[in-house]
């Protein structure tokens, strides 16, 4: 019991000693980098619809996202995306490019452990939870809609 109190006291003390960083610069950077990534997406989408006027909007969006995923994967391979990430934080994590980066980076990192046990197994160490949670949530939503439709 006494130990616990000492620990709590120490942790409170540490919390107070942690250097405070200014939040505004990083918020601003995440804002404009995130905005620019979305702008690039909109630009690609509009360009696709301009070049192929007959393309369905759904297909155009799919191509847009694939293009963004490719760009992010490529920048990760070049070793540039982590520098953008360090600068922009949430600005480069939240867009779909961050998802792509979180799949590409472990794939490249763990290639030395072999294609199967390195690249393929470790590919989802960061992005796995995203797919798992997203898919489970979508199944739940589907089930709810199915049950609601029965009533």
């Amino acid at each position: 019991m006494k130990n616990q109190q000492i620990n709590q006291k120490y942790n409170r003390y540490v919390e107070a000693r942690i250097p405070k960083t200014k939040a505004w610069p990083s918020l601003f950077n995440s804002f404009w980098v995130g905005g620019v990534i979305c702008l690039i997406g909109q630009g690609i989408n509009d360009a696709l619809l301009y070049i192929f006027p007959s393309m369905a909007e759904q297909t155009a969006w799919a191509w847009t996202l694939i293009a963004l995923i490719f760009i992010a994967s490529f920048l990760t391979a070049l070793g540039v995306y982590d520098k953008i990430g360090k600068f922009a934080g949430g600005g480069s994590i939240v867009p779909i490019t961050g998802f792509s980066n979180s799949i590409s980076s472990p794939a490249i990192e763990f290639k030395h452990e072999g294609i199967i046990y390195g690249t393929c197994v470790k590919m989802f160490t960061v992005a796995g939870p995203v797919i798992v949670c997203g898919v489970v949530a979508s199944v739940v939503v589907g089930l709810i809609y199915y049950i609601a439709g029965l009533i």
Partner: peptide
């Protein structure tokens, strides 16, 4: 787009969560 991303950054700063959890 910028606001949504900034919301992510707010989450990072206030809760120290890592990128997997943010996604």
């Amino acid at each position: 787009g910028g606001l949504v991303c900034m919301l992510g950054e707010v989450l990072i700063i206030t809760t120290k969560i890592t990128s997997a959890r943010i996604l």
